[in-house]
Simulated scan of single mutants.
Amino acid sequence: MRWTLPNTLTALRLLAAPGLAVMFLYFSRPLADWFALLLFVSAAITDWFDGYIARAWSLESKLGAMLDPIADKAMVVIALMVIVGYSSMSPWLVLPATFILFREVFVSGLREYLGDVAGTLRVTKLAKWKTTFQMIAIAVLFAQGVFEHYLAVTVIELDPRQVSAILSGDSADVHGLLWKEQGMTWAGHIGLTLLWIAATLTLITGWDYFTKALPHLQEER
């Protein structure tokens, strides 16, 4: 095994994955949301850099090829678990998250079963786009959590009638209620849209991997 710079970045990304959940155990919101957002974005950036450096400097290795998809899956799975766990369990969020988690488990099981011939399930360009949409969607949904918390803190300090007057435009928004509400709403809509796109690509690539694996699943006669 070679511990090159790309491999080190990938290993750090893998170690950062459980840190997303730890943030919400040891920090109160919105600090937990901020830390999770910064940690996830930093990890997503290293995902691009380690691949670029490995190709540009000819530092590709078997260790990196093994760790990279594991780190990506760990980041996505744990991040979705945290987001769903701290959400209102809306089906618009739970369903795409379920599709993504199911596909990751299914494809990982296929690769494990195929063993030496798992190379037939090479990562496609569509699968890379799937990962990109997943990363962006999750980052935006973490940002929604930041807006949501600041909005909740502001609303608690105000009279309900005052909140209604501000949101309807009948009262001056000296507390920044509108931009927090709009930030939460837009981040939610954009994040869910991107997550559904990612889920669609997830199902398409999962089916593609399954059809490629079918010849190796035939019973011998």
Rank of each mutant, 00 (worst) to 15 (best):
M81T: 15
M81L: 13
V82N: 02
V82P: 04
I83P: 01
I83K: 05
V84C: 15
G85K: 10
G85P: 13
G85F: 15
S87T: 07
S88V: 14
M89G: 10
S90T: 11
P91E: 08
W92H: 08
L93G: 08
L93F: 12
L93H: 11
L95K: 08
L95I: 15
P96R: 05
A97D: 13
T98V: 15
T98G: 09
T98H: 03
F99E: 00
F99N: 00
L101Q: 03
L101P: 00
R103K: 13
R103D: 02
R103E: 09
R103F: 08
E104I: 08
E104A: 10
E104R: 02
V107Q: 02
S108L: 13
G109N: 10
E112T: 12
Y113P: 00
L114E: 02
L114F: 05
D116Q: 10
D116W: 01
D116T: 05
D116P: 03
V117N: 00
V117I: 12
T120S: 13
T120D: 03
L121R: 00
V123F: 02
T124N: 01
T124K: 01
T124R: 04
T124P: 01
T124D: 04
K125M: 09
K125C: 00
L126Y: 07
L126T: 05
K128N: 05
W129L: 12
T131G: 14
T132W: 13
Q134R: 03
Q134Y: 06
I136W: 14
A137F: 15
A137Y: 11
A137V: 11
A137E: 09
A137D: 14
A139W: 12
A139Q: 09
L141G: 02
F142C: 04
F142G: 01
A143H: 03
G145K: 01
F147M: 10
H149N: 07
H149A: 00
A152K: 15
A152F: 14
V153F: 06
V153R: 09
T154W: 07
I156D: 07
I156C: 08
E157H: 07
L158W: 11
L158C: 06
D159A: 11
P160E: 13
P160N: 11
P160G: 09
R161M: 13
R161Y: 14
R161L: 14
Q162L: 10
Q162F: 09
S164K: 00
S164N: 05
S164T: 04
A165W: 06
A165G: 05
A165M: 15
L167S: 02
S168D: 09
G169Y: 09
G169N: 03
D170K: 14
S171H: 08
S171E: 14
A172P: 07
D173S: 04
H175Q: 11
L177E: 01
L177A: 03
L178Y: 06
K180E: 02
E181D: 11
E181F: 12
E181H: 10
Q182T: 13
G183A: 04
G183E: 06
M184K: 09
T185P: 04
T185R: 11
T185Y: 11
T185L: 13
W186Q: 02
